[in-house]
Design a protein around this nucleic acid. Structure first.
Length: 570
RNA sequence: CGGGCCGUAGCGCAGCUUGGUUAGCGUGCCUGCUUUGGGAGCAGGAGGUCGCGGGUUCGAAUCCCGCCGGCCCGACCA
């Protein structure tokens, strides 16, 4: 099979730039249907693994390998000198012998030095993803995919809660479908991958690899829609899509990515608009705020930024750690554009034929990038507990005197309490190394179990977000962990909200917009931006991210008194 | 597609200007011992068509020509 990514521009008669490139042989690897995880199996699925992700023989949390005599001898040899004083201290002041802030080894480029470099470092060191062999493609590694699976599970549940059902449509779309909607084809043809050969022969009609599925799904919605009783028709699919990218970045912009695309048809414009808004708020915003702990701004796109073929595009915009904006999700009112192109008609109650009104909406693996850049710090990822595939890691500091058994019991108790937990008993790695690893991976709470603590019947709990430590009795560890998880979830959201608000300024002129956008978001009255200003800002790398009402709520259609949020963006 | 830069061990790099032993260094990897409460130490070891092709030369990672690939900056996008 030969994939041709350049020729289609001409064939589709688009104004897009022409590109040259070799035709590349590629194996047919049409992987259809994304498996997604059952959230309930998450904790148990991980329980038999150590921190390396390798299955230990014997499984269960109590596996012991290669730890015996020496470490016991070592701990026995070490008398309680330091601990003796510490014990006194602790009992009187509740202090911790190792509470002082530890010198942190630099494992990542600091954010302040070079934010993009930091982002790449995190992805590499936390083992989230790699570049694929074809430029712009992405290999999502198990720890990265686990994050995506958690996102899928949470979003899927919310999508279904508003009455949408999942289906699956093909990867290949007839090229002719794309051309039926003028704006749509113009918008997408520059980034299409087109298959010209199959089965060793040139195809009579080339097929495109879906960049999005409005067209195929429209064709079938038309087929399935006869009566107003068939509407609303509410569909969603989890799939991969391909948009040939010139400047790829892992998670943020790759030539192939994973997403969810919803497609619905309604009897009236009002119904369609209301549904798009409902998805936008009840699914996307709630998920992003409650699960991702990201304070997204909701708004409408300007005509220039609208989805090709839409009459209105709603967006969720987030601010990253460097002040730049990231579009986290969009919902489109497609009006009757696709209904006309694909003949989506129905008979209404009076028996007269009507054109349907459609919507589409999606969120993608880009959210993983947004999550990294929103909460990450110089030590690595910081995952919000509600999302985190692993919420608590129980770290065996050093073996001896029943430490292993205590780790096992704690893991069992946490699991029984519904916490997603793993045990790290890798005695062959130094303590510091393992701590650093778990910090890189962003696990919200770390519980350190070692002989010294245990002699006091205690363990040490450490928050990933603040690095603060506290010691609690073994019996209280589960309850404390639960409280910490809740606190971390709230605090991450609060921290991100505070940063966004600090870096958002109200301005009144276009020049001020450009200046303010250098460090964050600029808010300006939409009517203060004249024709041509939007384009002029774009030359400085600044775009209008969205339009909101003065109170920050979502506008409906064309309203006066709107505020434009302008920023640099990813 | 325009402008700048780079291809040497898995990754990051030095060596090239001024051609000449067996091509080095950091990290990672393997083995052993000692370690383990904040990226452990020591010893030993494996790993290279110096991007590809041609040319100059007694001799090329190094000089010349061509090709291929990649990165960064500008015009589009979840």
């Amino acid at each position: 099979m030969v994939t041709d990514v350049d020729g289609v521009t001409d064939r589709l008669g688009s104004s897009g730039r022409a590109r040259s490139g070799p035709r590349t042989e590629s194996e047919p690897d049409t992987e259809s249907g994304e498996a997604f995880g059952d959230p309930r199996s998450e904790a148990t699925a991980r329980a038999g693994h150590d921190g390396d992700g390798r299955q230990r023989p014997g499984s269960g949390s109590g596996v012991r390998i290669g730890r015996h005599g020496p470490s016991v001898a070592a701990s026995a040899r070490r008398p309680r000198v330091a601990v003796g004083g510490g014990r006194c201290c602790r009992s009187h002041h509740g202090e911790n012998y190792n509470r002082e802030v530890m010198p942190k080894p630099q494992v990542l480029t600091p954010q302040a030095d070079d934010f993009p470099r930091w982002y790449q470092d995190v992805i590499a060191k936390a083992e989230l993803a790699d570049n694929g062999p074809v430029r712009g493609t992405m290999v999502i590694r198990p720890d990265g995919y686990a994050i995506w699976e958690r996102m899928q599970a949470e979003v899927d549940q919310r999508i279904k809660a508003v009455g949408v059902r999942n289906a699956y449509f093909p990867l290949f779309i007839p090229e002719s479908y794309l051309t039926r909607e003028a704006e749509h084809v113009e918008g997408f043809s520059p980034e299409l991958a087109v298959v010209t050969h199959g089965g060793g022969k040139e195809l009579a009609e080339p097929v495109v690899v879906r960049p999005t599925s409005e067209t195929v799904i429209g064709e079938y919605i038309a087929k399935w829609t006869q009566s107003y009783r068939d509407l609303p028709l509410l569909l969603n699919q989890w799939a991969n899509v391909v948009r040939w990218e010139l400047r790829p970045r892992l998670f943020l912009r790759s030539s192939e990515f994973l997403w969810q695309e919803g497609h619905t048809a309604h009897v009236s414009r009002e119904d369609a608009a209301a549904f798009a808004r409902r998805i936008h708020t009840e699914v996307y915003r709630d998920f992003m705020v409650d699960v991702l702990a990201m304070p997204v701004l909701l708004g409408a796109k300007t005509a220039a930024e609208r989805f090709p073929g839409a009459i209105d595009t709603l967006t969720c915009e987030a601010m990253m750690g460097d002040g730049k904006a990231l579009q986290m999700g969009t919902s489109h009112e497609l009006g009757q554009n696709f209904a006309k192109a694909f003949d989506i008609r129905f008979l209404d109650e009076s028996g007269s034929e009507q054109l349907a009104w459609t919507t589409s909406w999606g969120v993608s693996t880009r959210m993983v990038g947004g999550l990294i850049m929103t909460h990450g710090d110089d030590r690595g990822l910081r995952l919000p507990p509600v999302l985190a595939p692993v919420q608590v890691v129980v770290l065996l500091v050093r073996d001896g005197d029943g430490v292993g058994a205590a780790v096992d019991r704690l893991v069992d108790d946490l699991e029984a309490a519904g916490v997603r937990v793993v045990a790290d008993t890798r005695a062959e790695l130094s303590f510091g190394r393992r701590v650093t690893d778990w910090e890189l991976k962003g696990v919200p709470v770390r519980i350190e179990v070692g002989p010294r603590d245990l002699a006091e019947g205690e363990v040490t709990l450490v928050r990933r977000d603040t690095a603060s430590k506290e010691q609690v009795g073994l019996g209280g560890a589960v309850a404390t962990a639960g409280k910490l998880l809740e606190a971390i979830q709230q605090d991450l959201l609060a921290e991100a909200t505070e940063r966004r608000d600090e870096r958002t300024v109200d301005v009144s002129t276009v020049d001020e917009v450009a200046e303010a956008a250098a460090t964050g978001f600029a808010r300006i009255r939409w009517d203060a931006i004249g024709p041509g200003d939007e384009q002029r800002l774009a030359t400085d790398g600044v775009t209008i991210r969205c339009l909101q009402r003065l109170d920050g709520s979502l506008p409906e259609g064309d309203e006066d008194e709107l505020i434009a949020i302008a920023a640099r963006s990813y």
